Computed example of a mutant assay.
Amino acid sequence: MGFFDGYNVSSSGMSAQRTRINVVSANIANAKTTHTAEGGPYKKQQVVFQDILLANSNQKANSNDVEATNDKNSDIALRGVGVKSIIQSDAKPVLRYDPTHPDANPEGYVAYPDINPVIEMVDLIEAMRSYEANVSAFNTHKAIDSKTLDILNA
Rank of each mutant, 00 (worst) to 15 (best):
T140F: 11
P117F: 08
A133D: 00
L54A: 07
F138C: 06
A55D: 12
N105S: 09
S85A: 14
A61N: 03
L95A: 06
A29M: 06
L78S: 10
N8P: 05
K92V: 12
E107H: 08
R96W: 03
S12T: 08
S25M: 11
I151N: 08
R96I: 07
T69P: 05
P102M: 08
Q88S: 12
N105I: 02
L53V: 14
A68C: 10
H141Y: 15
T148G: 10
I21T: 07
Q46L: 11
E38S: 13
E38M: 13
N8G: 13
V66R: 01
Q88H: 07
Q46W: 03
E126S: 04
S25Y: 05
F49N: 01
A37Y: 11
N22F: 05
V122Q: 00
I144N: 04
D150C: 07
D51S: 11
K147M: 14
P102E: 04
Y109R: 10
G39W: 05
S10V: 00
M14R: 03
L54S: 05
R20V: 01
G6I: 01
N58E: 09
G13R: 00
K142Q: 15
N70F: 10
D65M: 09
M1A: 13
K43V: 13
S11V: 15
K147T: 13
A77G: 11
T69A: 07
A143S: 15
A77V: 02
E107V: 00
N116L: 03
N62E: 09
S10N: 01
D75Q: 11
G82K: 01
G82S: 04
Q88C: 03
N73M: 10
Y7P: 00
E132Y: 08
S146P: 01
P102I: 08
N139Q: 15
N139A: 15
K84G: 07
D114H: 06
V66I: 15
K147N: 13
A37E: 15
T69K: 08
N27I: 07
G6E: 00
I151F: 11
N58H: 07
L149C: 08
R79C: 02
P99T: 00
A91V: 10
P102T: 05
V23M: 06
S57F: 11
A29H: 05
T19M: 08
R20L: 09
D103Q: 01
K142A: 15
D75L: 12
L78A: 12
L54R: 06
Q59G: 12
A31K: 02
M1Y: 04
T148N: 10
R129E: 06
V118Q: 01
K43L: 11
S15M: 10
V135Y: 09
S136C: 11
S25P: 02
V9Y: 00
A31I: 00
E67Y: 15
G13T: 03
Q45L: 07
E132A: 09
S25I: 14
L78V: 09
S146D: 14
R20K: 14
N73V: 09
N64F: 10
F49G: 09
D65A: 13
I125D: 02
A137I: 11
F49D: 05
R18W: 03
N27W: 04
T33D: 12
G6L: 05
A68G: 10
I86T: 04
D145N: 12
A111V: 02
V94M: 08
